[in-house]
Each structure stands twice: as structure tokens, then as C-alpha cells.
Amino acid sequence: DQATDPSIPEENWECIQRFCEQVNAATEGPSLAPRLLAHKIQSPQEMEALHALTVLETCVNNCGQRFHNEIAKFRFLNELIKVLSPKYYGTWSSEKVKLRITEVLFSWTVWFPQEVKIRDAYQMLKKQGIVKE
């Protein structure tokens, strides 16, 4: 909650790092953290969602293979897709948050080409016209 405080526009890097450490320390960390982050990313508060995306990106680089395996699953990718899709939360999500999610997903297709589910999800979004270029 501290790391994604919507009332503070700047990133609280100390707090984000503490969160990553907690994820690494707790046995359930890598499986629980993606769910917590997905919930925040789906927040109607733009600033909270943007902060949560920063925490997500930081965790992907700092929280090890198990966390990585979880975010590469449809179970997590679907939660990001819901924010983009007009059939779910896309109509009321902010353009800024949707653009940021698209950028994160695209970067993952580049950095993790071996993750076929990420590629499938991104290609589906392009096919459905939800992701343009």
C-alpha cells in the first residue's frame, strides 16, 4: 500500500525495494505478489495503478524465477488484459495506464522471447485491435 500510495506522485523506491525483499523472503511471496499487484494495477485510481506497474517491473527484475514464472502465466496476463479490454475494465481505465501496460507487455515479448504465453497474449491483443502499433 505504501509503495503504491496514490497521493504521492513520485516513486517511493525505498518502499518498492522493501516490497521486493519481502517477496523474496516469504515462501508464498512469488505466488502472492502478482495477485496483489494485479489488484492494484486494476485500481480506478490512475496514480495507484501506475505505481503498481513500477513495482511490477522492479519485481520482474529482482524477485527471481518463481515470480517470473507466475507473471508469465495467463492467470496473471489475463488480469492485465482485463484493464485493456473494453469487454472488462478497458472503457473506464485511463489511457496512461493502458499505454503503460501495453509497453510492459511488449517489453516482455522482447526480453522473454521464450515465454510463449506472453507472446500469445500480445498477439491476441493485436489481432483484436486492442493494441495498435
Binding site: S31, R66, K73, F74, N78, I81, A121, M124, I130
Partner: peptide
Amino acid sequence: TVSFHDDSDEDLLNV
């Protein structure tokens, strides 16, 4: 508890 290699998942959302 979640086994170390938990590869349970769901299908891709159809939108």
C-alpha cells in the same frame, strides 16, 4: 502449499 514447480494456469482470456 504451492509446490516449487507450480505450473497450474488458466486459459487466455478471450476478449
